[in-house]
Design a protein around this nucleic acid. Structure first.
Length: 764
RNA sequence: UGGGGCGUCGUCAAGUGGUAAAGACACCAGGUUUUGAUCCUGGUAUGCGUAGGUUCGAAUCCUACCGCCCCAGCCA
């Protein structure tokens, strides 16, 4: 369970850091702010954090990120904790509150001030905004930026003491007003907020900001991986800055990793919008079954198993994506299939009279599960003269392919009898008011085989009960609510249908919290709050798949189509004259541009060519191999080494691949000839030896060889790959290819084939 | 127009230079079925945003271009 073993970029990273000892134990955390109800998006984070910790034998903390007293409450914290537990996760003793760290955070802030790394800014909110600049313009210092540490310290202490009003001043980190990253332009650390906090009461009049508090809380708790969503990407630099400049003693330092949040079409998950739906009464509350909140899902009857499975199947990646809710629907069905006993309920009743039924009530034992489940259990269902069937199961003029009841047809009443149409009545408007049938006594229950193609569900009129059944559809009609208009206008007016259904007697004992499959209708859940003993109220959890009623094709979230690759004008090379000179040497424009982009590289180029007079080859080697392999600009003094290396490649002594192995050392001044010799890097180009290897590879893989002969030229790569592997990557590529071709007898075969084909067509 | 990210099937997603591009949902076609459900079988990307380049070999490396998301709260 939720011990996702699928591969993802976070696991890959953890694996490697565990392997090289940088991290000993995986410690994660789920850090909600207790100011709202968690939704399906939080579930992903919960499953990820707790799941990862569990699967690596580490631990996961539940930490309330309560750094802003506004809107936070113990009730929310309780609800959050509840939902985490409901999902099936356990934080053990590790429940924490950022508010418990206020004192430590404060002490660290003083230390930052003392070291000149933070200052109290008395500018107004507007002034600070103005001085921050824009994404294209650098910020400028406010008049308070250079005040002395002692001055700031004094102010900061008085801020804490409550001497100033809200908004009078803030504490800011002194980082870099000109940074391209807006988050680094002297971010705010503390604000004055004379508001009491649900946990610390009136002890504090200043509160830390997320960026300052979160990373240090992580450090304090020994968190190793601080996972958050993509929009915090820009905050990572700041996260690292605080961790680096505050002496927390955390080892290893916690690191922030961002992943894509879970989004669904036809759904909103923003706290603001969810709140608006509740406050304006568009839904009945935070736990309305149409809400994407965990409380809503629970109320609807979705089990935690299904939520966890969803998170597992969706995976973790860094690409923003929007899920089709059909996936969740299907997972819910799979989860409930073996959980929900089968019973009958008629949601939209149409009276049916069995004309040749004279007996009283016939109680039939009907199984609670399909026979192939192998599960025990049955319940008695009453058959009688007067029944109800689903209105949609009778059509006066059936469409092609309709398998249910219609004039002249017979149909199986599930677990009852086969009945045959004898007549029907309509009202003044032409609506069918009653169907008449006759039954075949020989077809009772499961006793007799029958050829009828359709089976429909039913209940007896006098012994069935009325019950409230709520059928749900997506809350929003639009795939992307709010994309083209106010999101409230995208609300689906038919998202809730409250029906008075007829349920079979056994169902009247359904307890709140029980799951049922209403045969042919869907999975239903006896509402925990509204059901009363003997009077259940049902929520539809999810419908059954219905391949007859073709579901309206969901309008997929409009993903802006990528413009089909227009090729824009290429920019001019940085140094037009030089670039032209290079072109004259036979070097193409792209290559020339990269080469001249950094004068240092151009100089290296000149130096290498001086030793190895193959300008085109040198340019390509530098651009495609050397520059990408170098961390910084390539140094001029390694040019001789590069020249020697390339000379080996060009003379066939080394393949490009082997050259790559040597490159790193050459870049730090190594001698390629010596290194190659030391590591035994010699190209295998002996055709006899390669042919032997290739022949063996072909013999070992007859199927692949056949595929190749059948015309799949790409199997060449497979065999060359085998040869490469066998030689430890030392085979000369071209020679290896020739050896494989010879081993496969390719061109002869192909010639034969072509000849045969031409003969065959001649004969026609 | 600055910076940070991201583009692999209708939707998610694996893939880290060599076994004809996993898997799931959706879709299509069959089979089983007293639920048009479940279950089973098969099909579905000659290609990884586009165009060039490097390489024996590229979704993976290089270059340019295109598109989408995020950042200018005293929110988190």
């Amino acid at each position: 369970m939720a011990s996702d073993t699928g591969s993802n970029f976070i696991r890959t990273r953890i694996d490697s850091e565990l392997a090289d000892g940088r991290v000993q134990q995986v410690v994660t955390r789920f850090p909600p702010e207790p100011n709202g109800w968690p939704h399906i998006g939080h579930a992903k984070s919960i499953c990820l954090n707790f799941g990862l910790a569990a699967s690596y034998g580490g631990r996961c903390h539940l930490r309330f990120d309560d750094t802003n007293p506004e809107g936070e409450s113990e009730e929310f914290a309780q609800a959050l904790a509840n939902d985490v537990r409901w999902l099936g996760f356990d934080w053990g003793d590790h429940k924490y509150y950022a508010s418990d760290y206020y004192e430590q955070l404060y002490v660290w802030a003083e230390s930052l001030i003392e070291r000149g790394l933070a200052y109290v800014d008395e500018s107004s909110e507007e002034q600070i905004r103005a001085h921050r600049g824009t994404v294209t313009e650098a910020g400028t210092p406010t008049p308070f930026r250079d005040r002395s540490p002692a001055d700031s310290l004094d102010r900061f202490r008085r801020m804490r003491a409550g001497e100033f009003d809200d908004g009078a001043m803030v504490l800011r980190a002194k980082i870099d007003l000109t940074s391209n990253n807006m988050k680094m332009r002297d971010p705010l650390m503390y604000r004055i907020k004379k508001q009491s906090h649900y946990r610390t009461g009136d002890a504090w009049g200043i509160y830390p900001f997320y960026d300052y508090a979160h990373c240090l809380s992580d450090a304090l708790e020994g968190i190793t991986y601080s996972l958050c969503t993509l929009e915090f990407e820009n905050n990572r630099e700041l996260y690292d800055w605080y961790v680096q400049h505050v002496d927390t003693g955390a080892d290893p330092a916690p690191q922030q990793i961002e992943f894509a949040r879970l989004a669904l079409t036809h759904t909103v998950t923003s706290k603001r919008k969810l709140k608006q739906l509740v406050l304006e009464g568009h839904v009945s509350g935070w736990d309305d079954p149409r809400m994407p909140t965990l409380a809503g899902l629970r109320r609807r009857g979705v089990r935690p198993e299904a939520v966890r499975e969803l998170c597992d199947r969706v995976g973790v990646a860094r690409a923003n994506s929007t899920l089709d809710p059909a996936l969740f629907d299907q997972i819910i069905r799979e989860d409930l299939d073996a959980e929900a006993p089968r019973v009958m309920a008629v949601l939209d009743p149409l009276p049916m009279v069995v004309e040749n039924w004279d007996a009283d009530v016939d109680w039939i034992d009907a199984p609670l599960w399909p026979s192939e489940f192998g599960l025990e259990g049955e319940r008695p269902i009453p058959f009688a003269k007067n029944l109800f069937i689903e209105r949609a199961d009778f059509k006066v003029k059936p469409a092609k392919g309709f398998k249910r009841l219609a004039p002249g047809r017979s149909v199986r009443l599930l677990n009852g009898y086969v009945v045959t149409y004898t007549g029907h009545e309509v009202d003044a408007d032409g609506n069918v008011t009653q169907v008449r049938v006759s039954h075949d006594p020989k077809t009772r229950g499961g006793d007799a085989r029958s050829k009828v193609s359709g089976s429909i569900h039913w209940v007896a009129r006098d012994t069935s009960m009325e019950a409230t059944v709520r059928v749900y559809d997506r809350l929003f009609a639009a795939a992307a609510p709010g994309l083209e208009q106010d999101f409230l206008l995208d609300l689906n007016p038919a998202s809730l249908k409250t029906l008075t259904a007829r349920i079979e007697p056994a169902l009247s004992f359904a307890e709140g919290g029980s799951h049922w499959q209403f045969i042919r209708a869907g999975y239903f859940f006896a509402d925990v709050q509204d059901s009363e003993p003997g009077k259940p109220v049902f929520n539809q959890v999810v419908s059954l798949k219905d391949s007859w009623k073709k579901q309206e094709t969901l309008v997929q979230a409009r993903k802006a189509a990528n413009a089909p690759g227009k090729v824009g004008d290429k920019p001019d090379p940085l140094h037009p004259k030089r670039a032209k000179a290079l072109r004259d040497l036979g070097i193409d424009e792209d290559t020339a541009r990269v080469l001249t982009d950094d004068p240092a590289h151009d100089a290296v180029f000149v130096a290498v060519v001086a030793k190895h007079a193959q300008p085109e080859s040198v340019a390509k080697f530098l651009v495609n191999e050397v520059i990408p392999a170098a961390e910084q600009a390539v140094k001029l003094d390694v040019a001789p080494g590069i020249a020697a290396l390339l000379a080996m490649v060009d003379s066939g002594k080394l393949t490009t691949k082997l050259a790559r192995k040597v490159l790193a050392e050459v870049l730090t001044g190594g001698d390629p000839v010596a290194i190659a010799k030391r590591d035994g890097l010699t190209v295998v180009s002996d055709s006899g030896e390669l042919l032997a290897i290739a022949t063996k590879a072909v013999a070992d893989h007859p199927e692949e060889a056949q595929k190749f002969r059948d015309g799949n030229g790409r199997m060449m790569g497979f065999f060359v790959g085998k040869v490469m592997k066998a030689t430890g990557g030392k085979a000369d590529g071209k020679a290896a290819k020739q050896a494989v071709e010879a081993a496969l007898g390719t061109w002869q075969d192909q010639m034969v084939q072509i000849l045969n084909e031409s003969k065959a067509s001649d004969n026609k």
